[in-house]
């Protein structure tokens, strides 16, 4: 069968330039949001770790720190931080979800066999580690901030809540498990952040990788020591 092609050529629709959609709708835009919010969360986790180190200085220091947090800027400070964190988590999760959906749709039929060379376990499990870390945060808030899953929560006595909280072995184990996943998440996340924000330079590529490792490790180790210290009776 023979067909006759149109003599006059109309511009082929798909060939025409389309007006670029907004930053937020573009894949790279959402990536950047992910990176920025990730960076905020990352910064918080570090700061939070340092703050929590006060526990080793005893009840006064820890509770003082807690009180300070609540009173700084006449109480406004904490709320600002909370607002920022909340926004970051929401945006981060939204970006992660929409990017993930786009990528899922991009490969409807998978491979029978696939061998990985460059990607890491951490990079391939970002979505899971993220979700679990999020679940952890929710539990963690109910545990230490609202106290509704805490055996003997005392509003304001952060030190007591802390020590009492980690006395329970399963709780501590859950914390430890979550921290390891957080470490994985950050191990890829931090390097990925540089790449996404376009600040990666071939000369500093290795440093960025090593840096990501070190930070992730510090956070995991630092955080894991809290429950361990309590269980070991080192912090009472």
């Amino acid at each position: 069968h023979i067909i006759l092609a149109v003599a006059a050529i109309a511009p082929r629709e798909e060939a025409r330039m389309l007006p670029a959609p907004g930053f937020v709708r573009s894949s790279i835009g959402r990536k950047v949001i992910m990176a920025v919010t990730g960076a905020i969360l990352f910064g918080f986790v570090i700061g939070h770790l340092i703050g929590n180190l006060q526990v080793y200085l005893g009840p006064e220091a820890m509770n003082g720190y807690g009180a300070f947090l609540r009173e700084v800027f006449h109480g406004a400070g904490l709320w600002i931080v909370r607002a920022v964190l909340l926004a970051a988590v929401i945006l981060h999760i939204w970006a992660a979800t929409s990017l993930t959906l786009q990528s899922r749709a991009a490969r409807p039929v998978g491979y029978r066999q696939q061998k990985w060379k460059e990607s890491t376990y951490a990079s391939r499990t970002m979505r899971w580690s993220g979700v679990i870390v999020f679940a952890f945060v929710v539990y963690h808030l109910m545990h230490f901030t609202f106290g509704n899953v805490h055996p003997s929560f005392i509003e304001g006595d952060v030190y007591h809540n802390f020590v009492a909280g980690f006395r329970s072995v399963p709780v501590s184990l859950f914390y430890i498990f979550s921290m390891i996943l957080l470490g994985l998440h950050l191990r890829h996340g931090v390097w990925s952040m540089f790449q996404t924000l376009g600040v990666s330079h071939p000369r500093y590529l290795r440093i960025a990788h090593i840096g990501a490792w070190i930070f992730a490790a510090l956070i995991v180790i630092g955080n894991i020591f809290f429950p361990l210290a309590v269980l070991a009776g080192f912090v009472k």
């Binding site: 007006p19 959609p21 894949s27 959402r30 786009q102 990528s103 991009a106 060379k117 990079s123 970002m126």
Partner: peptide, 18 residues
Amino acid sequence: MVARMDAEGFGTCTNHGE
């Protein structure tokens, strides 16, 4: 180019390096 790339239905980059 990025707009067209997205419109073609490719996935997004999470820096796997594969």
